[in-house]
Simulated scan of single mutants.
Amino acid sequence: MGENSLDMIEFELTLLHRRLTSISTDKTIGNLDQSAYLLLQRIAYHGSTGVKALSDEFRLDISTVSRQAAALEQKGYVSRIPDPLDGRAYSLHITDQGIEELMESKNARQARIEELLKSWSDEERSLFGQLMKKFNRTFTS
């Protein structure tokens, strides 16, 4: 990779991070913060899962995910399902209220993205999505 492209990518990622951070605190795009949104999204689309699996997937400490999960449980967005083989372990299951909150946030986020990309062609949107997906998958390698 050329130094110019590496410079451009590094700067644009830094700028993107800053802008996403400012958007994630904007309450007009839903009531879920980024961590809550990611956890609920993961549980909703892949099924009940444990804190350890979530911490591995998002590369976070178990204590961090446990705190985030406790906050989601307190709000009624997830419930704990005890592990029948290990009385100390449990899986997190998204509740109807959690699904409702997730969908509200997802729709608001998608509306914001749609507004930002309104001048882009379908081909540009598709390519951008494919490249973002490819980039994000490199972290799991």
Score class of each variant (00 low, 15 high):
residue 1 M to K: 08
residue 1 M to Y: 09
residue 2 G to S: 11
residue 3 E to Q: 06
residue 5 S to Q: 06
residue 6 L to H: 03
residue 6 L to S: 04
residue 9 I to E: 05
residue 9 I to D: 02
residue 11 F to T: 10
residue 12 E to G: 01
residue 13 L to V: 09
residue 14 T to P: 00
residue 15 L to T: 07
residue 16 L to V: 07
residue 17 H to V: 05
residue 18 R to V: 10
residue 19 R to K: 13
residue 21 T to E: 14
residue 21 T to S: 14
residue 21 T to C: 11
residue 22 S to H: 12
residue 23 I to H: 14
residue 24 S to H: 14
residue 25 T to I: 13
residue 25 T to E: 15
residue 27 K to I: 09
residue 27 K to G: 11
residue 28 T to E: 14
residue 29 I to G: 08
residue 31 N to Q: 10
residue 32 L to M: 11
residue 33 D to N: 15
residue 33 D to E: 10
residue 35 S to L: 11
residue 36 A to D: 11
residue 36 A to P: 06
residue 36 A to C: 09
residue 37 Y to C: 10
residue 37 Y to W: 12
residue 39 L to K: 06
residue 39 L to W: 08
residue 41 Q to C: 10
residue 42 R to E: 14
residue 43 I to E: 03
residue 43 I to M: 04
residue 45 Y to A: 04
residue 48 S to H: 08
residue 49 T to V: 12
residue 51 V to M: 00
residue 51 V to C: 02
residue 52 K to M: 08
residue 55 S to R: 02
residue 55 S to F: 06
residue 56 D to H: 04
residue 56 D to M: 04
residue 56 D to L: 04
residue 58 F to M: 09
residue 59 R to E: 06
residue 60 L to M: 11
residue 61 D to S: 11
residue 61 D to N: 05
residue 62 I to K: 02
residue 62 I to Y: 01
residue 63 S to C: 02
residue 65 V to D: 00
residue 65 V to Y: 00
residue 66 S to W: 02
residue 66 S to N: 03
residue 67 R to E: 02
residue 67 R to I: 05
residue 70 A to I: 01
residue 75 K to D: 02
residue 75 K to A: 10
residue 76 G to K: 01
residue 76 G to T: 00
residue 77 Y to K: 00
residue 78 V to A: 02
residue 80 R to S: 02
residue 81 I to P: 00
residue 82 P to G: 03
residue 88 R to V: 01
residue 91 S to D: 09
residue 93 H to R: 11
residue 93 H to K: 12
residue 94 I to F: 04
residue 94 I to P: 03
residue 97 Q to M: 06
residue 99 I to G: 00
residue 101 E to I: 08
residue 102 L to I: 11
residue 103 M to P: 00
residue 103 M to C: 03
residue 107 N to C: 01
residue 108 A to N: 03
residue 108 A to H: 04
residue 109 R to Q: 09
residue 110 Q to T: 01
residue 110 Q to M: 05
residue 110 Q to D: 05
residue 112 R to W: 11
residue 113 I to L: 13
residue 114 E to F: 10
residue 115 E to V: 04
residue 116 L to M: 13
residue 117 L to T: 14
residue 118 K to C: 12
residue 119 S to N: 14
residue 120 W to Q: 14
residue 122 D to S: 15
residue 123 E to T: 14
residue 123 E to Q: 15
residue 123 E to L: 14
residue 124 E to Q: 15
residue 129 G to L: 14
residue 129 G to V: 09
residue 133 K to T: 13
residue 134 K to L: 15
residue 135 F to S: 13
residue 136 N to I: 13
residue 138 T to N: 10
